[in-house]
């Protein structure tokens, strides 16, 4: 459970600036970006842990991280986890996304 999942921000909530829409391997869910000191913007790559962005990374690091998850046999688990994030789902609080 210590492993972090790479994803790319595709939108930030207009009403809740600490919520970002993130794409992880084609699955899009919301994550909390309240732990990022300098905030985040659409297009940024992040490492996600239990629904929170832990740190910003670059695209190459995201690819590294994804390959590592695959090597650890945990890539499917990671997608399953992201798919499981149910807070502020698309029908809920995050209907307006600033792109």
């Amino acid at each position: 459970m210590c492993l972090a999942i790479p994803g790319q921000i595709v939108g930030i909530s207009a009403e809740q600036p600490l919520l970002a829409r993130v794409d992880v391997g084609g699955v899009q869910r919301n994550v909390n970006i309240g732990l990022l000191e300098e905030g985040a913007a659409t297009g940024d790559w992040i490492l996600i842990h239990v629904g929170f962005a832990l740190s910003k990374i670059d695209e190459a690091q995201a690819a590294d991280q994804l390959r590592m998850l695959r090597a650890m046999g945990e890539d499917k688990l990671a997608i399953e986890e992201v798919r499981g994030y149910s807070f502020a789902d698309a029908n809920g609080e995050l209907n307006e996304i600033r792109r």
């Binding site: 909390n32 239990v50 629904g51 929170f52 986890e81 499981g84 994030y85 149910s86 807070f87 502020a88």
Partner: peptide
């Protein structure tokens, strides 16, 4: 089972 504490809050 939850994947995030925020899911528990939900």
């Amino acid at each position: 089972m939850v994947y995030s504490p925020l899911d528990a809050l939900r």
